[in-house]
């Protein structure tokens, strides 16, 4: 039962990864890609790590720390990238 649940979480995470990363190849604006990347890299990775946590609860301190740092750093990186890219060269971009 728990095994099934953990594989479901990991599967959802990998699906998020593909869904959120594929728009990178298209021709959208940086901010739009940032939205889909936040789905992939923050939420998808959190789902994968949560699945791992269900699989092997013995390593919980490491995995909980990973979830916290993932949420914090990826969100901050999203903000910093949005801020820098929008106030830098808005008009140079096609």
């Amino acid at each position: 039962m728990i095994n099934l649940l953990s594989y479901t979480c990991i599967g959802i995470g990998i699906f998020f990864w593909f869904w959120g990363t594929l728009p990178l190849l298209g021709k959208k604006s940086v901010l739009f890609k940032l939205h889909s990347l936040s789905v992939a890299d923050t939420l998808g990775s959190m789902a994968i790590v949560f699945g791992l946590l269900l699989k092997i609860p013995r390593e919980w301190p490491l995995l909980v720390l990973t979830i916290i740092t993932l949420a914090l750093w990826n969100t901050m990186l999203g903000y910093v990238l949005a801020y820098c890219s929008s106030s830098g060269g808005e008009n140079e971009r096609a």
Partner: peptide, 15 residues
Amino acid sequence: EIFLITFTPKTIVVK
């Protein structure tokens, strides 16, 4: 607050 707004995928604080 910036963290919360940016964390949800539909919205990003730009500045």
